Computed example of a mutant assay.
Amino acid sequence: MKRVARSKRAPRRAAGFTLIEMLVAIALLAVVAVLSYRGLDEILRARESLTSHMTSERALSQLFAQVNVDLRNAARDDEVGQPPVRVGGGVLQIVRNMRLPGQAPRLQVIRYRDTGHRVVREASPGISTIGQLRANLNGQADDGWSSIELASGVDGFGSEAWVPDHGFTADMSVARDQLDADIKAPTIPQAGNGPLPRSVTGVAVDIRLHGQPAPVRRILLVGQ
């Protein structure tokens, strides 16, 4: 009998991946994961920074708007007996007119100060007598005062007064000398008994936020 020769077939390859292929795939996935994480982390950091910056800008805009309102309503020098605006020492103090519906006009002392990297606005109750005015000008804010935080993350807060013929200064003696000169100035008959000129006609407010190299400055007018 003749033997039938069997055809030799190539051995079949086992299904699946080899260990080397698995290691290569895992390494590629790890690289992709690291790159994706870094990209996502940068996006999140940028978003947080932008959100924080926008929040700070909004807070500064509100703060400057409130200071502007208080300065526009500042009392006159002859109503207070001294310059109604005081700068220096990290405090901006304003004596302003307070008008409430159905009530007689009164004065109010406003203070802006930096307390623990926060700018707060302190407001006295309505003032109707000279004695109350002197007490609130020279005293500390007590239980009768209101206080509100207007900005946080502040590393510096300062202000300067614009005194006519002198320019910006943080020395209030310059403003007081200007007021004394206005009082001693000869009266013009045609002008009658008009109010004294303002010893401080403008204020520059400087606020430096945390992480910012330079302060933000706004120049505001007094009584206008």
Rank of each mutant, 00 (worst) to 15 (best):
A30I: 00
V67P: 01
L50W: 03
V91P: 01
R45C: 00
G90W: 08
L50Q: 14
G81L: 02
L60M: 13
I43G: 13
S56I: 05
D77Q: 05
R58N: 12
G90S: 10
E21S: 09
K8I: 02
F64S: 00
F17A: 12
A5D: 14
F64I: 01
V32H: 05
R12H: 13
A15Y: 04
S61W: 12
T55F: 10
A14P: 08
A33P: 07
R3C: 10
Y37P: 01
Q82Y: 08
D41C: 00
V80L: 10
V80R: 08
P83N: 03
I43D: 07
V69M: 05
A33S: 15
M54C: 02
E42T: 15
D41A: 15
N68W: 00
P84D: 08
G16E: 04
L35H: 00
S52L: 07
G39Q: 05
V67S: 02
A59E: 14
S52D: 02
V67Q: 01
E48R: 02
A59R: 15
A15K: 04
V32K: 08
L35V: 09
D41Q: 08
F17S: 11
S61C: 06
A75M: 13
I26W: 09
M54E: 07
M22E: 11
T18F: 08
E42W: 15
A14K: 07
Q66N: 10
L28D: 01
L60D: 00
V80A: 05
V31G: 03
M22K: 06
G89R: 05
A5V: 14
S49K: 08
L29P: 00
R86F: 00
A30G: 13
V34I: 14
V87G: 10
V4H: 08
M22W: 13
R47Y: 05
R12S: 13
P84F: 09
K8H: 09
M54K: 04
Q62G: 09
E48F: 01
G39P: 00
K8C: 02
L71G: 04
Q82D: 09
V85K: 11
L23P: 12
L29G: 11
F64M: 03
T51D: 09
L29C: 10
E21V: 00
R3A: 14
L28C: 09
V87T: 10
Q66E: 14
V24T: 08
S7A: 14
S36T: 15
E21P: 07
R58P: 01
A74W: 03
A27T: 13
D78S: 12
V87R: 12
L63V: 05
D70P: 10
M22G: 09
A75E: 06
L50P: 01
T18I: 06
D77V: 07
P11F: 12
